[in-house]
């Protein structure tokens, strides 16, 4: 079964149709990259999977988004529960002005977990998974804001992992980072896919090539092409995809 399914999805901001009849299926334990020029709808589409667009007043959606076969826009779905399952990492690292330790367990505290042993274990495990443990294990009580940008982003990933999601959505997670931090995040994504299903929006086509199994190219709200990343970058079927990946766009 697919982990994520979108069926005939249309999204409107007011009268403006920003996603046009998009259907896509994403398998478990894969990395899927959404690429496309600015304003093509890729971030809007990504945010449908954890209902982040719900906060926009003029947002309206048609169609169906399913996770493990259940419709996440169903009225009975509790959004907080959904977001435990679907973590998200944003473009700009957004740690809270708290210690590294408190940042990681923030989600667990909200869930009411107080057992120090559980919290300690979660901090260690999440930071290890986010490839940050060795760098911060001796300063867990220090402010997260003292970390470098790349470390902060890995901390945000650790914070996401701590609540044990099954899907991680990433919206340009490395675009504000230098090449070394970017490489670390990319290696991390590559390692995390054995446990999680990852969907990543990226402006960096090379990044999509390096880390993803499948790539979806969006243009003006349409899903133009969705295929194996190898195919998208060596022999795309659609001319618009070819023009985009070869930089001959417009």
């Amino acid at each position: 079964m697919n982990k994520l399914d979108a069926n005939n999805v249309n999204v409107f901001y007011g009268s403006n149709k920003v996603i046009k009849d998009v259907s896509i299926s994403i398998k478990q334990n894969t990395v899927t990259a959404f690429i496309g020029p600015s304003g093509c709808g890729k971030s809007t589409f990504l945010r449908l999977f954890n209902r982040m667009n719900d906060y926009i007043d003029t947002f309206k959606m048609e169609g169906k988004i399913e996770i493990d076969g259940s419709n996440i826009y169903d009225k009975q779905i509790r959004v907080e529960e959904l977001r435990k399952q679907i973590g998200m990492v944003f473009q700009k690292p957004n740690p809270f002005p708290k210690s590294i330790y408190e940042n990681v367990i923030y989600g667990l505290r909200i869930q009411g977990i107080k057992d120090k042993k559980i919290l300690d274990e979660s901090v260690e495990q999440s930071l290890k998974q986010a490839a940050l443990w060795d760098e911060v294990k001796d300063k867990l009580k220090d402010s997260a804001l003292a970390l470098s940008g790349g470390q902060q982003q890995r901390l945000c990933i650790a914070r996401t992992l701590a609540v044990q999601p099954t899907v991680i959505l990433m919206d340009e997670p490395a675009s504000a980072l230098d090449p070394i931090s970017t490489a670390k995040i990319e290696d991390l994504i590559y390692q995390l896919k054995s446990k999680y299903t990852i969907v990543i929006v990226t402006h960096n086509m090379q990044q999509a090539g390096r880390i993803s199994d499948k790539t979806a190219f969006f243009y003006m709200g349409e899903l133009v092409e969705y295929d194996e990343t190898k195919t998208i970058f060596t022999n795309p079927k659609q001319e618009r995809t070819l023009n985009y990946v070869t930089g001959r766009f417009g």
């Binding site: 090379q206 090539g209 390096r210 990343t229 190898k230 970058f233 060596t234």
Partner: peptide
């Protein structure tokens, strides 16, 4: 080789 060129530059 083609895939490595295309995907990893």
């Amino acid at each position: 080789c083609e895939n490595i060129f295309a995907l990893f530059n």
